[in-house]
Structures are given as structure tokens and as C-alpha cells.
């Protein structure tokens, strides 16, 4: 994965992030829950990190199932 760029999906709350995690697990898409980086938001929650190339796949999985606030490149 060296050189691969990451993005994070930010959610309204941890409940949403955990629902997103469940959806990605079911879809078999590699992901990681990480604390929201301070430079992105002062929120104390978690966000979902994926590789940049998976953004469209992930958005397709989330659509209609779980809402997200924004997507940020790390």
C-alpha cells in the first residue's frame, strides 16, 4: 500500500461510522476506523479511512444506507 493515498469519510456521529463499518465489512472493502484527525475537525469521534481509489465503490455502498458529512483527503 506504499504510496497509496488515503481518504476519510466523516459522519454525524459514531453510530453512523459503525453502521458504515458494518456495510464495508459486508461488502468486503478494506477500511479502518480511526479517530477524526484534529486538523480536519475538533470532533472527538471516529471516521472511516479507505484508500482513495475505493471512494466511488464506498459511496455506492453507503448510498441510501448511511449518510455521511464529507470526504477528506488525508
Amino acid at each position: 500500500m506504499e504510496g497509496q493515498r488515503y481518504i476519510v469519510f466523516l459522519f454525524p456521529s459514531v453510530s453512523y461510522a459503525l453502521k458504515a463499518e458494518k456495510i464495508l465489512k459486508a461488502a468486503g472493502i478494506a477500511h479502518k476506523l480511526i479517530p477524526v484527525p484534529r486538523h480536519i475537525s475538533s470532533d472527538c469521534g471516529v471516521c472511516v479511512r479507505i484508500t482513495e481509489d475505493k471512494q466511488q465503490d464506498v459511496e455506492r455502498e453507503f448510498l441510501g444506507k448511511v449518510g455521511w458529512d464529507k470526504v477528506v483527503l488525508l
Binding site: 456521529s13 459514531v14 453510530s15 459503525l18 463499518e21 458494518k22 476506523l33 472527538c44 469521534g45
Partner: peptide, 22 residues
């Protein structure tokens, strides 16, 4: 404590609540 902090035990607590909701 679910929904607070991002450590593994907090997330596991959150997952339990999510599964109950589901």
C-alpha cells in the same frame, strides 16, 4: 462507553448498540 472516544473498547460498546438497533 459507546460513542465517546475512539479506543477499541468504546468502539466495541458502540458495535453492540448498533447490532441491537439493527
Amino acid at each position: 462507553s459507546p460513542g465517546r472516544s475512539g479506543h477499541q473498547r468504546s468502539l466495541d460498546a458502540g458495535r453492540i448498540i448498533l447490532e441491537t438497533r439493527e
